[in-house]
Design a protein around this nucleic acid. Sequence first.
DNA 1: TGGTTTGCCTAGGAGAGCTAGGCTACTACC
DNA 2: GGTAGTAGCCTAGCTCTCCTAGGCAAACCA
Lengths: 198, 198
Amino acid sequence: MARAGVTAERLTLAAAELADEIGMENVTVAALARRFGVKDASLYFHIRNAQDLRVRVALLALAELADRVAAALAGRAGKDALVAFANAYRDYATRHPGRYAAMQIDLDPETAAASAGVRHAEMTRAILRGYRLSEPDQTDAVRMMHSTFHGFVSLEKTGGFRHTPRTTDASWSRALDALDAVLSNWPPAESTDAETAR
Amino acid sequence: MARAGVTAERLTLAAAELADEIGMENVTVAALARRFGVKDASLYFHIRNAQDLRVRVALLALAELADRVAAALAGRAGKDALVAFANAYRDYATRHPGRYAAMQIDLDPETAAASAGVRHAEMTRAILRGYRLSEPDQTDAVRMMHSTFHGFVSLEKTGGFRHTPRTTDASWSRALDALDAVLSNWPPAESTDAETAR
DNA sequence: TGGTTTGCCTAGGAGAGCTAGGCTACTACC
DNA sequence: GGTAGTAGCCTAGCTCTCCTAGGCAAACCA
């Protein structure tokens, strides 16, 4: 009766690998136990429940992504930094579809606040220093950047771009050009507010 | 033994409502059967399996969204049309989170080609006529628009914007301004290609 | 060396997906 | 207007997943 040496960390990593291979929706406690040559009930000694496992995978993915983005960003500024960030992001999502899917689950606020998602947000703001935006434009720009990255990667994965011959790589590159252009020349607030009216 | 009057259409609609109420991941054949006062096995007379049900909900949602977008777009052009499209999209996603989630499932190519997603794509291209873009810029712009919309709505729903005080409505409005600006002044292709080099 | 903790086990219940096969009510046709 | 077919439901029962309770043995620690 040799022990399998299961720990929460090893379970999380194996679950992440499993997610990349067969999709996050097919990652089950039973399947994970099989991979460790152990009964499913045994895993509940290490994880609270199936949802807990998913959250752990999400946190792992967020941390990994933050590391990659940080590495890509080192020594760059301006558009260079923007492109490096974006490519690191898309590359991670493409290489690790299961992990990326796990990142999309709803974390409760305190878990999210303690996650690497915060580092992610900080790095995005750092990029914008090269574009000289002040609040609240900066927040709006951060949100638009994230939306563009996540939306593109997400649609690309679910096949939303399949019906047009144009390669997604080319469109991605042009989207980054467009993003750089609009960040460099962020439009002033509309005339709905009194101070900018007329 | 009065018949419950179950049809595939009524099942799909009920599944969509259920999805909006309790989330798409909790929509189960058993729960749906309960809502109709019928045994779960009986539903397999109308639908092939659980996945078939999800696809039907996705197609329903795509058609509904296309209708709403078409209505919002009537008689508008330029930025007006862009904003109307975007708001109809976001409004639908907010009002029908379950249906919107269903739309994200991977449809096989032929099903997707026969879906209302095609109408959706056509309408997006129609908007861009106001911005006078020619191919392949048009395709790139369509993809960027969709990415921004989907990404924003998706991050908003999973709480990606929660940690900053700025309202999402304001950021959304400014993202549309930015999109209008960049579509009006679409940046030329980079100098990676020979013809534009130097 | 003996006690405690740790890591696995078996057993089992609840709920989900799905198949096979049966019974009944409505429809259609001669 | 009887009868054949079919549409719409049923029960029974299989497999799989998630999870709890309780047991036993290996590892560790005083």
